[in-house]
């Protein structure tokens, strides 16, 4: 189980958040851009230290300022895919997926087999020898996911993992993720924007606004208003564009 209580003074507002994610559970973080979602993941991963709080995973303390504990990023064994999937463009798909295994000194004899399985799972076998920088956005996201999962992380955090995937592979990846998280029994946090995605994969959803939790519940109960009020939401942008072209006022109001 992941228990995280994090506080940090940000430029525009103080972030103050407590979240718990159970083993095998997928928590979806939602909210406007700049609400503090990515910052929260960065603090849990150890990339950015909180000002105060407590982060504990399965009883192991990652961060506790009172005990002077701040486990470095590389020792937390978290699978973390950023918004920019950051595949290593100069390496092949195979080398990307093997990177974490090599870095953690996995016995060389077992690396090839494990990488092969991930290539197969993510439907990347045909691209194994291709330089990752040559891939499409959706393919890069699948490589990044396989790379994060190959070393067997104890916690999975994905920041907008589906936005570059085409419809079919999105369904595949969603189904796979649900299964994987349940089978491995690890906590998982997804940052997502679309309510539909949250309903498809999430067990629980949180909406952040200005660094605090403003709603928490089952994705199925996500407030309808949220969908239309979110700034920069595709539906809203489309309506605004249509209204500016046709002169018909947008049906979405502030």
């Amino acid at each position: 189980m992941l228990e995280a209580r994090v506080k940090k003074i940000l430029r525009d507002f103080p972030l103050d958040l407590a979240i718990t994610v159970n083993p095998g559970e997928i928590l979806v973080l939602m909210g406007e851009n700049g609400a503090g979602k990515s910052m929260t993941l960065n603090m849990i991963s150890g990339i950015i230290p909180p000002d105060s709080g407590l982060i504990r995973l399965n009883g192991t303390i990652f961060y506790d300022p009172h005990g002077g504990i701040h486990i470095p990023v590389e020792d937390r064994r978290i699978g973390y895919v950023f918004q920019n999937p950051a595949v290593f463009p100069h390496m092949t798909v195979r080398e990307n997926i093997a990177f974490g295994l090599r870095a953690r000194h996995t016995p060389t004899s077992t690396i090839a087999g494990r990488v092969d399985r991930w290539l197969d799972t993510m439907n990347l076998s045909d691209l194994a020898g291709v330089k990752a920088g040559m891939l499409s956005g959706g393919q890069q996201q699948r490589v990044a996911l396989a790379r994060a999962l190959a070393p067997g992380p104890v916690l999975l955090m994905l920041d907008e993992p589906f936005n570059a995937l085409d419809a079919r592979s999105m369904q595949d990846v969603k189904g796979f993720l649900r299964q994987y998280v349940a089978d491995e029994g690890i906590p998982c946090i997804l940052v997502m924007h679309r309510v539909r995605d949250a309903k498809d994969v999430g067990d629980r959803a949180c909406i952040l606004d200005q660094g605090v939790k403003v709603w928490e519940g089952r994705p199925g109960d996500l407030p309808g208003m949220y969908l239309t009020q979110e700034r920069g939401h595709p539906a809203r942008q489309l309506e605004t564009r249509i209204s500016s072209l046709t002169g018909i006022p947008s049906s979405i109001t502030d």
């Binding site: 590389e74 973390y80 950051a86 290593f88 100069h90 974490g100 870095a103 790379r147 070393p151």
Partner: peptide, 27 residues
């Protein structure tokens, strides 16, 4: 350079030297 590359490598357990020589310099 986008810090995401080096940070990703850190989450994957790479040492600073491995990141510098294997990620930062090639990129």
């Amino acid at each position: 350079m986008d810090p995401a590359y080096e940070q990703t490598a850190r989450t994957l357990g790479a040492s600073p030297l491995r990141i510098f020589l294997g990620i930062t310099i090639p990129l």
